[in-house]
Simulated scan of single mutants.
Amino acid sequence: MSKLEVAVSIGDINGVGLQIALQSHAKLSMFCKPFYMCDYPLLQEASTLLNLKNPILEKDCLPLNLPFKIKPGKIDSISGAYSFASFKKALEVSDRVLTLPIHKKAWQLAGANYAGHTEYLRELYGEGIMMLGCPSMFVALFSDHVPLKEVSSLISKESFKDFLLRFYKDYLKGRDIKEVCVLGFNPHAGDGGVLGDEDFLIQDAIKELNLDLGKDLFIGPYPPDAAFIPSNRARFSHFISIYHDAGLIPLKALYFEESINVTLGLPIKRASVDHGVAFDIAYKGAKVNTKSYINAAKFLV
Rank of each mutant, 00 (worst) to 15 (best):
F167A: 00
G190K: 11
V194R: 14
G220V: 06
L213A: 01
G184C: 03
E198N: 10
G184T: 04
D176A: 13
K173E: 15
I206M: 05
Y171R: 05
K169Q: 15
D176L: 10
L201N: 06
G184F: 05
F167E: 02
V182W: 03
L172I: 14
L195G: 11
L165P: 05
L217K: 00
D204P: 11
D216M: 09
Y168P: 02
I206W: 00
D216P: 11
G192C: 12
D191N: 10
F185H: 14
E208W: 04
P221M: 02
K173V: 04
K215E: 14
A205W: 02
G192K: 14
P221I: 00
R175S: 07
F185K: 12
L209F: 08
P187G: 05
I206A: 00
N186G: 13
L165H: 06
G220K: 07
K169G: 04
G192R: 13
D212C: 09
G190D: 11
D170G: 08
G196H: 11
K173C: 09
G196S: 10
G192S: 12
D216H: 11
P187W: 04
I177P: 02
H188Q: 12
G192M: 13
L213Y: 00
E198M: 06
C181N: 15
Q203R: 15
L165A: 07
P187I: 04
H188Y: 08
D216G: 04
G193F: 05
K178P: 08
F167V: 03
L195T: 09
Y222N: 12
N186T: 11
L172N: 06
L183V: 07
K178A: 08
D191K: 12
F218A: 03
H188N: 12
L183N: 11
E208R: 10
V180G: 02
L165T: 02
G196V: 07
D216N: 15
Y222P: 09
L209G: 03
D216F: 06
E179Q: 15
K215W: 01
F185Q: 13
D212L: 12
L201M: 08
I219H: 08
K207G: 05
Y171N: 02
D212M: 11
V180R: 06
A205K: 08
E179V: 02
Y222G: 05
K169T: 07
L164M: 10
L201T: 05
D197M: 04
V182I: 15
I206S: 02
D197I: 04
G192H: 13
G192I: 10
F185P: 14
P221W: 01
E198G: 06
N186V: 12
P187C: 05
P221F: 02
F218V: 01
F185M: 13
G220W: 07
I206N: 03
D176H: 14
D191S: 07
L211K: 14
K215H: 01
G192W: 13
A189E: 12
D170M: 09
L213K: 00
A205M: 05
L209H: 05
E198A: 04
G193I: 06
G184M: 10
